[in-house]
């Protein structure tokens, strides 16, 4: 049997009823009481009317209306804030953007490498010449806003790849990962391998995770004919946009290693790769 509700209980429950916070069963009891008690019915109607009036009053008041100019300004500033991270620093923070970012850096580096005179002695050459720096600065400003040239950009959006992957790409990826594994005895995983194009130049691009770091390794197969290999003995080190780029010319062609590792570790990775590729005409 349903307990009859008294006015005191109704007043207690009516606050929650007003906010639509009662269980269905209690709602029915509250409703039942109002049916039989004109005083409580009137009281509740007044409370409900006041509640509606509050909402209407605030909605109609210019004091509580956001200024369109402020809203527009905020939208623009927030958008700028959200997208400003498209620079190199955020590429490091956002692995998804990191990979095409690597591609651009690498490609820029390769372009600059044409004008870079590799030194004859020593295995590590730090600091590229001024014209290369100027080239990198100019190109990075253009490229940082786009990242359109790496096939991975398309893959991130789950679109079909525009560039057919070299059938040898998987073998290439393993050939890359294996010496890195062997040298660092660390958790090494191939994240992806594909071919990508930049201004008509085709690269084989292998992305490897080493521990918590991501490395991109690029091969310029066509460059094999243009650059005589020195057996991978000379490694050029460059820092661009917060990332380390180490490059060398292996028998298979120019190779580039890009990562957010400290310079010494990026170089040692490149060194391990260079040693592994020495004497190999193809991979």
């Amino acid at each position: 049997m349903v307990k009859v509700m008294q006015c005191s209980e109704f007043r207690e429950l009516s606050e929650a009823y007003l906010s639509d916070e009662l269980l269905v069963e209690t709602n029915l009891r509250v409703f039942g009481h109002m049916e039989s008690c004109p005083k409580c019915r009137e009281d509740f109607a007044a409370r409900r009317a006041l509640r509606s009036r509050m909402r209407e009053a605030v909605a109609a008041s210019p004091e509580f209306a956001i200024q369109p100019a402020f809203e527009t300004r905020m939208t623009a500033r927030l958008r700028e804030e959200a997208l400003k991270g498209r620079g190199w620093a955020s590429l490091l923070a956002s692995p998804k953007m990191l990979v095409p970012g690597f591609a651009v850096v690498l490609v820029m580096f390769f372009g600059g490498l044409v004008g870079l005179r590799m030194l004859d002695s020593g295995s590590i050459v730090a600091n590229a010449n001024t014209s290369l720096s100027a080239f990198l600065a100019e190109t990075s400003a253009k490229a940082a806003g786009s990242h359109d040239h790496c096939a991975l950009k398309k893959m991130q959006r789950w679109e079909s790849k525009e560039i057919p992957i070299d059938p040898a790409a998987e073998q290439t990826a393993e050939a890359i990962a294996e010496p890195i594994r062997a040298s660092f005895a660390s958790d090494v995983e191939i994240l992806h391998s594909h071919d990508c194009m930049y201004e008509g130049k085709r690269f084989s691009h292998v992305i490897v995770r080493r521990g918590t770091h991501v490395l991109s390794v690029f091969f310029d197969r066509e460059g094999k004919a243009k650059f005589a290999s020195d057996g991978g003995g000379h490694i050029v080190s460059e820092r661009e946009g917060g990332m380390q780029v180490a490059s060398f010319v292996a028998p298979v062609g120019p190779v580039f290693v890009v990562s957010d590792l400290p310079e010494a570790e990026n170089l040692s990775t490149a060194r391990a790769l260079s040693d592994a590729l020495r004497g190999r005409d193809s991979i």
């Binding site: 939208t75 958008r79 991270g85 692995p95 953007m97 893959m155 991130q156």
Partner: peptide
Amino acid sequence: MGWFRESSEEKWEAFAEEAMP
């Protein structure tokens, strides 16, 4: 490819849709 997170542009699009209104 689940390892990769969304890009800045995608993040902005989601934010614009969910939060800005």
